[in-house]
Design a protein around this nucleic acid. Structure first.
Length: 560
RNA sequence: GCGCCUGUAGCUCAAUUGGAUAGAGCAACGGACUUCGGAUCCGUGAGUUGGGGGUUCGACUCCUCUCAGGCGCGCCA
């Protein structure tokens, strides 16, 4: 269940420190946090620790004296074949062949369980992502949110969390009114009447399409006159939102994203939860009245922030107010941890929501907001601005048509959320054949092909215990085993740092080593023992490739 | 003006969260197929990590100043 080699080393280092203390070599009390990293050069080992540096600051001993103490203890462990002091203060660790062979066996018997952890301890976490306003189709930027949010959910569930994916629908407010007036105007045009299109309306062609559908779909309910009443607009709003949400769901499905729940903002107004949460904030003393409006004391939590309006002079609640009700509802549903994935254009909104949550009595870190930088669209040198209002945007569906789900997801997931990214449609299309995702998928398909061939030739795999894994001595074979051995730790770290892009880096490096192995070494047709060992190795590689690809929502094809 | 993010090879990006000689892909050039899939492999060139200063055994990473770009700063959502 826990295949972390770093944890194994860490425990041994702690044991070594304890032994040193017991035998009176040192008198130091606290154990420092142990950092184990993967060195850049092969001769520096499979893993290394800088513990001598850290300890020599606290103890009156040199790094080499400390290293000797630790090394003496570590050398006794049989999962390590070599332990060396590397001046000025590193200890380099070499994983033993036995342990690498054990890793292969673990992969084959545990399958995707090889990378599973239990540190989430069944705690309930929710990932809320995309949550685009139902005023238009999803665009490329939403694709980034979808890829990140969906993968994070997969990864956290590997870590032992109980994960829920949610989409929040902002179906009230001024934008919805603008939306329905836009459809109304298009409807009037269809009837041949002259209308001036609302200045602030939604100008995209999809509005015209929806108007056409409304004309048929709402035929009996729409008034014949050209006067737009509140009732008509409400009717149109409901119709339009439903149509747009259908399209959004369709795009998300194509992108491989499935939600556990869809929650509407209007629901919190209807259930009076918005007014309730505000009176409870008022009771706690975080709300005051000024200029006819109700204000929340953001400044009490963050000095640089200004107080924000909860209820307008007009008596209407702000988006902020209903969002507080929404987040309270999340915690009331029993969630221990809430992750929101937002675009950088919402950065300023983070402190006030965090403040509100703390005001309600929830710990500040029970909400984690992941901000991803916006996607800049380009077509060659030409920049395309993304505005749903003006109807100038590249819809996600078009990206899926042109580039495909696999490449799009891989692309979005191969950069950190902090980096702005240029999405060049020309390049994305052109790159398709040499896209990194195909390189990785090809490695997987190649393995499938080898395994099929072996099967067709009637090659029988001996029982696991009979396979002579010590025949795997080529550098490429060892490198592959090492990468597999380190995978659980990488997945663990990704679950903690919430940085899924590190998995695309791992995929590419393993695919590279596999392709090198493939060109240098024949799997089938070797001496029987060697063939068996290599078959087992590539099978393990395949399991891990598929596991990681699945975490990222990318398919692992048998053929391409 | 204030807050957040970014600046790394010609281009797009990594860099194990402060580690050792900063790495990949694309593009360019030169090689490798009668054997399991050439969507592959091998090699070559390409860098003052925007710039200055600081912190320490050690800095792309932290602090500070500065330049450039993006986003935000509504009784919009």
């Amino acid at each position: 269940m826990n295949n972390s080699v770093k944890l194994l080393i860490e425990n041994n280092l702690k044991k070594a420190l304890q032994e040193a203390k017991n035998s009176g070599l040192v008198s130091w009390e606290d154990l420092p946090p142990v950092f184990i990293s993967q060195p850049k050069r092969e001769e520096w080992g499979d893993l290394s620790t800088n513990l001598p540096f850290l300890l020599s600051e606290k103890w009156d001993l040199s790094t080499s004296e400390i290293a000797q103490i630790l090394i003496a203890s570590l050398q006794k462990e049989d999962f390590l074949s070599r332990v060396e002091f590397a001046p000025p203060g590193f200890i380099n660790l070499f994983i033993s062949p036995n342990y690498l062979h054990q890793t292969l066996e673990n992969i084959l018997t545990q399958k995707e369980g090889f990378t599973r952890f239990s540190y989430g301890e069944g705690r309930r976490v929710q990932v809320e992502f995309v949550s685009a306003n139902p005023t238009g189709p999803l665009h490329v930027g939403h694709g980034r949110a979808a890829a990140v949010g969906d993968s994070l959910a997969n990864i956290l569930s590997k870590a032992g969390y109980q994960v829920q994916k949610e989409y929040y629908v902002n179906d009230v407010g001024g934008q919805i009114e603008r939306l329905s007036r836009s459809v109304w105007a298009r409807l009037e045009e269809l009837e041949g009447r002259k209308v001036s299109f609302p200045e602030d309306g939604y100008k995209g062609d999809y509005i015209i399409q929806i108007a056409k559908e409304a004309k048929d779909g709402l035929r009996d309910k729409l008034p014949a006159s050209c006067k737009s009443s509140q009732k008509t607009l409400k009717l149109l709003a409901d119709f339009t939102i439903r149509k747009i949400l259908d399209k959004i769901k369709e795009d998300l499905t194509r992108f491989g994203v499935k939600y556990d729940s869809w929650v509407t903002e209007s629901g919190f107004h209807k259930g009076n939860q918005v007014s309730e949460v505000i009176s409870s904030l008022k009771d706690k003393g975080f709300v005051y009245e000024k200029g006819g409006a109700l204000w929340f004391k953001t400044s009490e939590f963050f000095k640089t922030e200004e107080d924000r309006v909860l209820r307008r002079k007009s008596g209407e609640y702000t988006y902020f107010a209903s969002d507080i009700a929404y987040h309270q509802d999340k915690f009331r549903r029993g969630l221990n941890w809430v992750i929101d994935v937002w675009g950088a254009d919402h950065i300023g909104y983070v402190p006030r929501l965090k403040a509100a949550i703390q005001a309600l009595g929830y710990p500040g870190d029970s909400l984690r907001v992941i901000i991803y930088q916006l996607v800049t669209l380009k077509r060659g040198e030409k920049r395309i601005s993304a505005s749903t209002r003006k109807g100038e945007f590249v819809p996600l569906s078009q990206v899926l048509d042109e580039v495909g789900k696999e490449a799009a997801r891989f692309f979005f997931l191969s950069r950190t959320c902090d980096s702005h990214l240029d999405f060049d449609l020309e390049l994305a299309k052109k790159q398709t054949p040499e896209n990194p995702v195909f390189y990785v998928q090809y490695a997987h398909a190649r393995i499938s092909s080898i395994l099929n061939k072996a099967k067709n030739k009637g090659t029988k795999m001996p029982p696991l215990s009979k396979v002579k894994l010590d025949l795997l001595v080529a550098p490429e074979e060892r490198k592959l085993m090492r990468e597999l051995c380190l995978l659980p730790d990488i997945i663990k770290e990704v679950g903690e740092s919430l940085e899924p892009h590190r998995l695309t880096v791992w995929l590419q490096s393993v695919a590279t080593i596999f392709h090198q192995f493939y060109t240098l070494h024949q799997v089938i047709g070797q001496d029987e023992d060697l063939s068996s060992a290599r078959l087992l190795l590539v099978k393990a590689v395949q399991i891990c490739l598929r596991d990681v690809l699945n975490l990222l929502g990318i398919s692992a094809p048998e053929k391409m």
